[in-house]
Design a protein around this nucleic acid. Structure first.
Lengths: 230, 230
DNA sequence: AAATCAATCTTGACACTGTAAAGTTGATGA
DNA sequence: TCATCAACTTTACAGTGTCAAGATTGATTT
């Protein structure tokens, strides 16, 4: 499964300065691009170096090894995920069902828009899972979802903590699993599945929180289609 | 990220016959073992060949390339998943809530018992996702869950109703996401998380289907612990 | 201003990988 | 008996991550 690669140095060796300037940032950007174009499996350290226009061993001086680079990419991805969720919940009233739904929608939207980065965030063996920065970055998006659930449950009636914890874990699992299954092609081609995101997920979340579905009639066809995929 | 490997042939070249006997089966078994011991990232074609006691190029004659081998491993894994779910469902009455819950429990149990194989099943880029055998094998476990949901919702033909389709997708997403997050270490160490599987998942499923939780008091501590992980 | 230093980047090497091509082996059918 | 052919090995090649050692350069010290 090794495909030929442009082995030539990206720039004539003479035309670029010996010192890059901000190689660290350039390598991170290169990694994100490689991730988007070729996926995790296709990303290589040497490929990132080529894209940044430096020798194959240059990245080591900034990130140690490949897991070091990917860890920092994952940290940035976590920040982007939190930003996407924040944007999604911006217009929702805190404590409302829409607030909870929006947080889940933001989560899945990020996954579909940045499948490579999203996948990387949960590949323990490809990064340093105990990195403090990574843990802190991950706590952000988790906090957004937890706050949404807590506010919603607290508004209706004071819920016991375990019940709220369970609903947080359930919401996260639901969104995470939905995203993962879509990206794995289990709901059909990603393109068609993405179209049904906004139709399906909100009612899933509503069901999880004991609320009545709010489907528009035109969404129903899409839903049936997904179920009939086998 | 390359760790040293026992490069010596597993058997003195003279002591084994030129023809293996059933190399195909031996290689599949070797792949499953490598998967269990080293995970997907650690599995290599040459490693499987070494473990089976043949030359590194032998697998090509039976599986073409590495994706061919992994596709067949994934097919077998799908069958195991269906078997685990069937076993979990066996004692539950069809149409009951326990029936639905058991199917989800079986799904997640398989994931935790065989993380490597479970992960492989959803790695499109590492196998041939359109392989007819793989699709057929995947339809088995999906059918079990779909039937459980359909029977519970009181409809003979589960696919006919969008509502049922949505609940099937939601159940699958919930179980899949829960398994994935546990395996990714997002609920703390896998060992402790696994202990809370039976405590958490049933009530998650109950919530999804609008049923009251049925937690035993001793489960509550575990649940809080998970929510407090950050 | 000159010398030194440390960070940055390159070159070269090594062990490993997947895959292709060509050569061996041994069982099977004419 | 002997030709055939699938099963397996050997050899080779391009690509990979990582290490060690050398080259370059901007910054710091004298």
């Amino acid at each position: 499964m090794i495909t030929p690669v442009d082995q030539s140095a990206p720039l004539p060796a003479q035309s670029r300065p010996y010192h890059h300037g901000d190689l660290r940032k350039a390598l991170l950007a290169a990694a994100v691009e490689e991730l988007a174009e070729k996926g995790i499996e296709g990303l290589t350290l040497r490929g990132c170096a080529r894209r940044a226009g430096v020798s194959h061993a240059a990245p080591a001086h900034h990130f140690g090894d490949v897991t070091g680079l990917l860890t920092e990419v994952a940290i940035a991805a976590q920040a982007k995920l939190a930003a996407t969720m924040r944007e999604a919940i911006a217009r929702a009233e805190r404590g409302s069902a829409e607030h909870v739904i929006a947080s889940a929608l933001g989560y899945v939207r990020f996954a579909l828009e940045h499948p490579g980065e999203f996948g990387l965030m949960f590949r323990r063996e490809r990064l340093r899972p105990d990195d403090p920065g990574l843990l802190a970055a991950g706590a952000e998006s988790f906090g957004l979802a937890a706050d949404a659930v807590g506010a919603f449950l607290g508004r209706r009636e004071p819920m016991s903590e375990p019940q709220s914890a369970r609903q947080i874990a359930a919401l996260w699992s639901l969104a995470h699993g939905f995203a993962g299954l879509m990206l794995a092609g289990q709901f059909g081609p990603v393109a068609t599945a993405a179209a049904s995101l906004e139709a399906l997920l909100p009612d899933m979340v509503r069901a999880l929180f004991g609320l009545a579905p709010a489907n528009r009639p035109e969404d129903l066809a899409t839903i049936s289609m997904i179920a009939r995929r086998r």
